[in-house]
Design a protein around this nucleic acid. Sequence first.
DNA 1: GCCCATGCTGCAAGCGTTTCCATAAACAGT
DNA 2: ACTGTTTATGGAAACGCTTGCAGCATGGGC
Lengths: 343, 343
Amino acid sequence: MVGISDVARHAGVSTATVSRALSGNGPVLAATRIRVESAARELGYVPSSNASSLASGRMKNIGVVVPFLNRWFFASVVEGAQSALQRNGYDLTLYNLTGGTEARRSVFEHFLLRQRVDAVIAVSLELTENEVTRLHALGKPLVGVGGPLLGVPTLTVDDIAVARLATEHLITLGHTRIAHIGGDKAFDLDFNLPTNRRFGYQAALAGAGIEVSPELYKPADFTMRGGYQAAKQLLGSPHERPTAIFAASDEMAIGCILAARDLGLVVPRDVSVIGVDDHEQAGFFGLSTVAQFPEAQGEKAVEILMNELQAGSAGVADAGTGALNTSMPFELIVRDSTACPPS
Amino acid sequence: MVGISDVARHAGVSTATVSRALSGNGPVLAATRIRVESAARELGYVPSSNASSLASGRMKNIGVVVPFLNRWFFASVVEGAQSALQRNGYDLTLYNLTGGTEARRSVFEHFLLRQRVDAVIAVSLELTENEVTRLHALGKPLVGVGGPLLGVPTLTVDDIAVARLATEHLITLGHTRIAHIGGDKAFDLDFNLPTNRRFGYQAALAGAGIEVSPELYKPADFTMRGGYQAAKQLLGSPHERPTAIFAASDEMAIGCILAARDLGLVVPRDVSVIGVDDHEQAGFFGLSTVAQFPEAQGEKAVEILMNELQAGSAGVADAGTGALNTSMPFELIVRDSTACPPS
DNA sequence: GCCCATGCTGCAAGCGTTTCCATAAACAGT
DNA sequence: ACTGTTTATGGAAACGCTTGCAGCATGGGC
């Protein structure tokens, strides 16, 4: 292994100077810096991050905890975070909690406390107060993505507003019999996501003076199959059939479209469908939707952490950690699955 | 921070003994171990992995490099690897190469060389010889998932056999006009995956004495849209229409099913469709397919690495690193998208 | 009863950086 | 010319753990 002392010898300076020259901490004569840099390049020297971390207390590594990885949303958040971190010279160590309670405990009791990460990003995770305090006690910044976390800076899209936007789009088109397919209570990963979207839906209806009829709401799994089955029920009986469906996710919405087709209905002529996410397959199905931008959320989370880490090292008190909850953008995307109701 | 010396004092032993007691390296009297363990628990001591790594040379961390993350296959491999690593007390640091050439360079020149990982798993990545040598020079075991890598233990499914299995399933059902939708050349991520699947398809036909007609092959994107468009062309003209389609991926196959429906054809009555992957949505669409098991691949990769790391530390020469290419299982899954051809 | 294994334990030397402090050099002000 | 600053550099002490080596009991064989 080529260590810092090799570089030092090669460049005719001390290890202290090499460290300063390469890290940019502390004053170094321009000429010296150049000598050191070329020596390092010549020897193919790469600093050992362990030694560096041990000595400096900075890990240059941040932990990302997700409940699952093979869902489009989570994977995209992680991907966004990864690129952003890489640009900042940070590593990303990934923890997923698929393993259940045991995995979760082990992540929090063991992995995150080992001084291996400078901070953590929790994606769609409802942390217990204990878990939060624990991390704070170690002085590790924490940011949440999706869902407000008590006392933790968090990125969220305003689910109520999202749902309202989608529903209002349908209302604007002239629909009045608008159904909603939401998540059932069991799907509690994402905080109150299902509930909030339902609220937004109801608020939009109320705002337009449309009565909210309970038979137009169907809870379902957050999957195509869930959406499909719910839509089958909603659209099954021709009398009193809704003319539009707002599904709480794109996958569900796609399920709706397929169900409609199977029932011989044409989307959007007979029934309009709108979802939420702008899932990668939304375009293919011509699905109108409200986009949220998971990569951007990952990147933003990183940005916040970088600021906090910098502030922390600058000795700034934990005072103005900024707005605790920063609201992420969303956007109505109209494709071919929504139109005026049949006359 | 509560360090090892605090625990030592608390338990009335030396730091050396604490280290041995908690890590299990070296002999410790049972009574002592218990004293140490309870002291550690009481103080909430967690060893600093940096210090530990620096002193021992073991990082307890392995790097996983993927080209993308938000694709089902990659995410699943990573998820499998993550769980397996967690069970072994290892961290997973993730690198994705979405950033393009620059990202790739920075990963290999910088990140992986910093003594932060004990080994690396490369998923569907054609590493250059330089990259491989570089890692080997550092003594870092490397295993590839998907696609043989020169001189590197690799997990692959036999794509030719997979394609043959799928095609033979169709042949067994009585089909003779069997089309294939494969990947185009540009899709070179996965080594020769498209080509191999095409070979397997042709081999199966040849084996059954069926002529391979070029107009029954369509290259396309590895997406639903790609499969949809290709299927539209294949199924468009009623005369000489194929009675079955073997698509090189489930997403493409789903596209086929949708295309068939849009053309007024019933699957599998008018046309059978089979894919490859057992994608999470295959079940919903009733798609017959050849499953490969990405999580299992991730886990297996970890298993191989664990063995190699152990062997390495045992001072075993690099001799019998085992079969360089271990073949992963696959399995025909028959659902409702394949049946006998129309008579 | 003595000596030699045997098995636990403690001492202390690293591991490869960073950073505090001291030193030295260079320069400005008087 | 002399002190007072300022700036670049080197020496050396951390950082928190692991591990080789030596020491010291303890127990068994003769």
